[in-house]
């Protein structure tokens, strides 16, 4: 019965303290910190700490999803599949947050909540692909078969996520910075003042996502063990 102590990092506190510190720092200095004055964006550039970080956290969750899917295929350990499923769910939470915040931001800077931007459509395709991951999981009643097929699909979905979010938008004209001839944030705008908040913000939101995901995994473990007995 030492299964709970196997994953010590999920029970450790140090990285959760870092997460809280980074988040409080972000929510305070995200408003106080100096930002460059830019046309169109004005003060909304501060959304970089809250909107862009959602996508970073989502991509981390999808990375964990892919890693644990590969791990499951080599180990066939049920626990690895559980982590993959929960990280996929957390990725959906962050994608919803990123999508809604993005629509609010776009409404006030680009004039419409949804523009026909390759980045936006690519993200929508990615979200649908991960929705299909859960539909696939629920469609197969056999536990082992479900985990195996879902793991293979998750690897495919992770690769396609890169194509949809990172590759295709760069080939077409996009309103997003860094795409289709638009200069990226880091070229001129992301000055040292913003970096001081942006990097802790990315770390903070990513760690918060990992924390919530690990909590879900632990609750699922408890559920499974109590059901077995």
């Amino acid at each position: 019965m030492d299964s709970f102590y196997k994953n010590k990092i999920a029970r450790a506190w140090w990285w959760k303290i870092i997460a809280i510190f980074c988040l409080v720092y972000t929510c305070y200095y995200g408003f106080i910190g100096k930002v460059p004055a830019m046309v169109v964006l004005h003060e909304t550039i501060r959304n970089l700490y809250f909107h862009v970080t959602m996508w970073m956290a989502m991509m981390l969750m999808m990375l964990i999803n892919a890693i644990y899917s590969i791990k499951y295929l080599s180990s066939l350990n049920k626990y690895d599949d559980l982590v993959a499923e929960e990280s996929g769910k957390m990725a959906m939470v962050f994608s919803a947050a990123g999508l809604i915040t993005g629509m609010v931001w776009a409404n006030y800077t680009w004039g419409a909540p949804w523009t026909n931007d390759p980045q936006l459509n690519g993200t929508a395709a990615t979200i649908l692909m991960y929705a299909a991951y859960f539909i696939l999981r629920n469609a197969i009643p056999d536990e082992n078969k479900k985990a195996k097929i879902a793991s293979v699909y998750a690897i495919f979905a992770f690769v396609m996520m890169f194509v949809f979010i990172m590759v295709i938008p760069k080939m077409y004209n996009s309103l997003h910075p860094g795409k289709g001839g638009n200069p990226g944030f880091n070229k001129y705008d992301l000055d040292s003042n913003m970096r001081m908040v942006f990097y802790p913000a990315v770390i903070g939101w990513c760690l918060l996502g990992t924390w919530l995901m690990s909590l879900n995994v632990r609750i699922r473990r408890i559920e499974e063990i109590t059901e077995e007995n």
């Binding site: 019965m1 030492d2 709970f4 102590y5 029970r11 959760k16 997460a19 809280i20 988040l23 409080v24 972000t26 929510c27 305070y28 200095y29 995200g30 408003f31 106080i32 918060l208 924390w211 919530l212 909590l215 632990r218 609750i219 473990r221 408890i222 063990i225 109590t226």
Partner: peptide, 30 residues
Amino acid sequence: ATVAAIVITILTAYVILIDRKVTKLEEKIN
């Protein structure tokens, strides 16, 4: 900024409480 910082502090404090609850449950089962 202070209000936003307080909100995130309270929310993460709540997550800490959930975490401790889960830890207690795990120890109970162990």
